[in-house]
Amino acid sequence: MASSDMSSEPLLRATNVHKRFDSVEVLKGIDLDVAQGEVVAIIGSSGSGKTTMLRCINLLEEYDDGEIHIDGETIGYRIVGGVRKRLRESAIADQRARIGMVFQGFNLFPHMTAEQNVMLGLTKVQKMPKAEARDRAVHWLDRVGLAERREHYPYQLSGGQQQRVAIARAVAMDPRLVLFDEVTSALDPELVAEVLSVMKSLAESGMTMLVVSHEMLFVRDVATRVVFMDGGRIAAEGPPAEVMGNPSSERLRSFLGRFHGLFG
């Protein structure tokens, strides 16, 4: 593990995570560390397990074996007498509140304005007073360049704007780690840049991010580390220049070859 240090656990540590859907094993033992302030990009073809890995970290999927720790605390499960037991709903909710997630399909709440979308978790989960939550929402909507659109409902916003609101909604919760699940894949090409630039600025501010993305230029420029997943395993891992500039395997070479024009 490139950046881990045995004496103090990293922010996220996943060890030997297995996940199967019926008879298909999607994750075949993933070991992944993410240190505070790192921006780790997961790349790989569809079906390689990238999205499933993110969803396991946020407990949207139950993983079958292995452990995931956030700040040293096992999430989702506890071991009782050698048997894994899923935590109670409320405990899982508390753990999720510490991890932000941005989805491919935005998933903004359609019956709430942009500001209300951002405020909901603050007032209901963190029990923050309304005025304070509003200030926080205004601050983050401003950060993503949508201060003027606070009162707009999702259907009144473009895809790129909706995704920026979704980012504001995730980061306003002050999470330890933010997961980005192919957040630009559902966007029209001309709207991708505005979302990526927001993500880049978050990365530069020191936010810890785990990003599944097909935007190779963004990955090369912004990620501190790249993880290449293939067939439910991590097949290569390292600094972008190393992993992407000098592919270690044929599979990685052929995967990157699809984006070849981008690297010249």
Partner: peptide, 17 residues
Amino acid sequence: PVGQTEAAKAIGMRFWQ
């Protein structure tokens, strides 16, 4: 859509919330 539930889960909301 199931994404609505997932988004609500992701910000730490509980079932009744």
